[in-house]
Simulated scan of single mutants.
Amino acid sequence: MNAFTEALISKEENLKYRDKLMLFGQFVGEWDFEWHDKNANGKERIIPGEWIFSFVLEGSAVQDVFICPSRKERFKLKQPDSEYGTTIRFYNPKKDAWDVFYGCTGEATLLEAKPEGDKIVLTCLNTQDHIMKWVFSDIKKDSFHWQHMFSKDNGGTWNINGELFAKRRK
């Protein structure tokens, strides 16, 4: 497994697209978060999670591991919709945007990401009955806000499916 890890993980970004790579490169490191949403019964819940980002593939992409509930809480705080997934993000100079793939058990999502002002907006490319986007906002060195949103009226109104508030581990 060590050879795989060494071939996958990079200590720094690829210098060719350094400025573009830092859009997601700013998140490289370990984060703890609180996930906020409503369960299937409509009851508010807050779940601790962790999000770990790294440069990968000779620094040409940013990959993460998204774990909710966190590894520390998974067996104490069981959730029927828990996630242990990964996202890989490649900057695409032909589109001046990011090609993004998120996958976990039972889900594979293709997205395109672009900065919009002080936010990063990832738009889902493979939904049928609604529009979905993920939004990073209020981005600071040691914290950020993230929302998973959907619209069933072609973007007229947006509903928040869930959101998280992340803090960088010290």
Rank of each mutant, 00 (worst) to 15 (best):
Gly106Glu: 08
Trp158Leu: 11
Pro48His: 11
Phe33Ala: 00
Leu77Pro: 01
Asp153Arg: 10
His130Asn: 08
Phe150Tyr: 14
Ala108Thr: 08
Ala3Asp: 14
Tyr17Asn: 15
Ile131Tyr: 09
Val121Gln: 05
Leu111Phe: 10
Asp81Arg: 10
Lys43Glu: 12
Thr157Asp: 09
Thr109Trp: 13
Asp96Lys: 14
Ala113Lys: 01
His130Pro: 02
Leu8Asn: 02
Gly106Arg: 06
Glu50Gly: 05
Lys95Ile: 09
Trp31Ile: 09
Lys167Ala: 10
Gly162Thr: 01
Ser82Leu: 07
Ala40His: 12
Arg71Val: 01
Phe144Pro: 00
Thr86Ala: 14
Lys43Thr: 11
Phe75Lys: 10
Gln128Ser: 13
Ser54Met: 04
Arg74Ile: 12
Lys133Gln: 15
Ala7Gln: 15
Asp37Thr: 09
Asp129Leu: 11
Asn154Phe: 03
Asn161Glu: 13
Phe150Thr: 07
Glu112Arg: 13
Gln128Trp: 13
Ser54Pro: 01
Asp32Met: 07
Leu77Thr: 07
Asp81Trp: 12
Glu163Asp: 14
Gln147Val: 03
Val62Tyr: 00
Val56Gln: 04
Ser70Pro: 01
Thr109Tyr: 12
Arg168Ala: 02
Glu30Asp: 15
Asp37Cys: 11
Gly25Cys: 10
Tyr102Ala: 03
Ile120Pro: 01
His148Ala: 15
Lys141Tyr: 06
Gly85Tyr: 01
Arg168Lys: 15
Lys11Pro: 03
Thr127Phe: 08
Leu125Glu: 10
Met22Ala: 13
Ala166Lys: 00
Lys167Thr: 14
Phe33Ser: 03
Phe27Tyr: 13
Val100Thr: 09
Ala3Glu: 14
Glu50Leu: 06
Asn39Gly: 08
Pro80Thr: 02
Lys152Ile: 06
Gly85Leu: 04
Asn41Tyr: 06
Asp99Met: 06
Lys114Phe: 05
Asp129Gly: 05
Asp81Met: 06
Gly29Met: 12
Asn161Asp: 12
Leu164Val: 04
Tyr91Ile: 01
Ala7Thr: 09
Ala108Leu: 13
Ile52Trp: 01
Cys68Pro: 00
Phe90Gly: 02
Ala3Trp: 09
Lys170Trp: 01
Gly103Ser: 12
Gly42Val: 10
Glu116Tyr: 06
Glu50His: 04
Ile88Val: 14
Asp138Lys: 14
Gly103Pro: 05
Leu8Ser: 06
Arg71Pro: 00
Asp142Phe: 02
Asp138Leu: 11
Glu6His: 14
Glu44Phe: 08
Gly162His: 08
Ala108Glu: 07
Thr5His: 11
Leu125Ala: 11
Tyr91Ala: 00
Thr87His: 03
Phe165Cys: 00
Tyr17Ile: 03
Glu83Ala: 10
Ser151Glu: 09
Tyr91Asp: 00
Ser70Lys: 05
Trp98Gly: 00
Asp99Leu: 03
Asp118Val: 06
Ile160Asp: 10
Asn154Pro: 01
Gly117Asn: 15
